[in-house]
């Protein structure tokens, strides 16, 4: 698998950056050939992971890129922060579990929206979420 185009990096510092990240994600998705409800679904997933950064880590970034593997095209969304990290990822991925802010929908919801979802976190170091969706 390789990435192409330039990577699009959106710093996430406040709630208005969430809007920017998802708009850029939608534009890239359309450019990559996603159609129907997919650009909106991708934008919604970006919105959730970006909100996670604002709520828990205060600052981080979303890196968007086009990817291709054998003959298929896709989009990769990488959300990373240097926040407090998540001690219990299994718990954080439970639908409805919230550590305070929010509804506990964000991370599990984003996983449902995308084709691939991977989360890595180290307490005290930060969290990174990698999501991919392929053009159908």
């Amino acid at each position: 698998m390789s990435t192409f185009n330039e990577e699009l990096c959106v710093p996430i510092k406040s709630d208005s950056d969430i809007v920017e990240a998802r708009q850029k994600g939608r534009a890239l998705a359309i450019q990559l050939g996603f159609s129907g409800s997919d650009p909106t679904v991708i934008a919604a997933a970006i919105s959730e992971v970006a909100r996670n950064i604002v709520n828990h880590a205060t600052r981080g970034e979303i890196v968007l890129s086009g990817i291709h593997e054998s003959s298929r095209l896709g989009i990769q969304v990488l959300a990373r922060d240097e926040g407090p990290g998540i001690a219990d990822i299994e718990q954080a991925m439970q639908y409805g579990y919230s550590s305070g802010k929010g509804m506990g929908v964000g991370l599990p919801g984003a996983k449902w929206l995308m084709d691939e979802f991977d989360i890595k976190s180290q307490v005290g170091k930060g969290t990174s979420v990698t999501m991919r969706k392929w053009v159908r």
Binding site: G36, S37, P39, T40, V41, A43, A44, E48, Y95, V105, P108, G109, W112, L113
Partner: peptide, 14 residues
Amino acid sequence: IQPDVAFAMVQLGL
């Protein structure tokens, strides 16, 4: 609420 937006909401369980 637009159809795509509704679709994404349903997938998010909202």
